[in-house]
Design a protein around this nucleic acid. Structure first.
Lengths: 147, 147
DNA sequence: CTTCAATTCTTGAATATTCAATATTTTCAA
DNA sequence: TTGAAAATATTGAATATTCAAGAATTGAAG
């Protein structure tokens, strides 16, 4: 009888793989919806975080929208050109830049939110209410336990 | 009483976001382990899929390792240079290229598997046996329901 | 005070990914 | 059997991301 080693487990059974696959699929669907407004998912996240009206530093934003710092800087450059957001130097700490959402950004964000809600609703239909909330709960606790 | 609209749900409660966050974190951890052998996660996936010893076409591989086609081609180019895998034209359909793992690839794959198992074990410890298998189950069914 | 380390953000060069176009082979209908 | 459409993989140009270095500011120890 062979030793029951986990080393030969097919890739499709690894948690890391399942997460990547699910993420890829859901993200692809969301991308598709948001492309109606020509906006990448990351920009929607940025707008959503900023839509509390407060200023958020670049470092804070980078963490919140899951982008590393230089990538965020360049994406923000584009969004500033599109007048969706704007920079203000933090008066309390001049190393920091505070990002704010513009009026135009708010308008766009509303449209994007509704597209995103459409998707969540679509998932709820095909996947089920119960599974969805259970999955969310488990993901949250996985994220917690990883820190 | 305001209408209970979902449009203002914070980003952290969206399934798409939770998936992205969990994926990012778990992937980062795996990356860290595999970097001991200087191999990106995608290459481990490729080696693992090919380690059944059969030939796999590029299209098949691309789907299995979650890379799009041109990206895979270029990654395979590198792996061929490193003599981890090799190409054979499919005799039955000469449009296709069949990929095979080399002996060197097999040796590397073994080491990588054990690093990956380490990680899964680490997750099991901190996150729990039950949660892990429940999460896997839910992810699988989410993926199924998205097709 | 002053200087040195740490924090925050940006920049430029090196890499990697993606999109559109191309080349090759197969399929299939006329 | 021929010719057009589909399938498969690669390539090259355009974009995007990352890594390492740089500039500015703050904090804090001496």
């Amino acid at each position: 009888m062979a030793k029951p080693s986990k080393e030969n487990t097919p890739i499709t059974e690894h948690l890391a793989y399942l997460l990547a696959q699910a993420n890829r699929e859901i993200n692809r669907q969301l991308e598709l919806r948001l492309s109606k407004e020509g906006v990448p998912v990351e920009q929607w996240r940025i707008l959503k975080v900023l839509s509390d009206g407060n200023g958020h530093s670049m470092g804070e934003l980078a963490g919140a929208v899951l982008l590393n710092h230089p990538t965020l800087t360049k994406m923000i450059d584009r969004m500033v050109s599109d007048t969706l957001v704007y920079r203000v130097q933090d008066p309390g700490d001049r190393r920091k830049v505070l990002m704010f959402i513009s009026d135009r950004g708010k308008v766009l964000c509303k449209k994007l939110n509704s597209l995103a809600v459409d998707q969540e609703e679509h998932i709820l239909e095909s996947y089920g209410d119960k599974s969805t909330s259970e999955l969310k709960r488990l993901l949250e606790s996985l994220i917690d336990s990883s820190n």
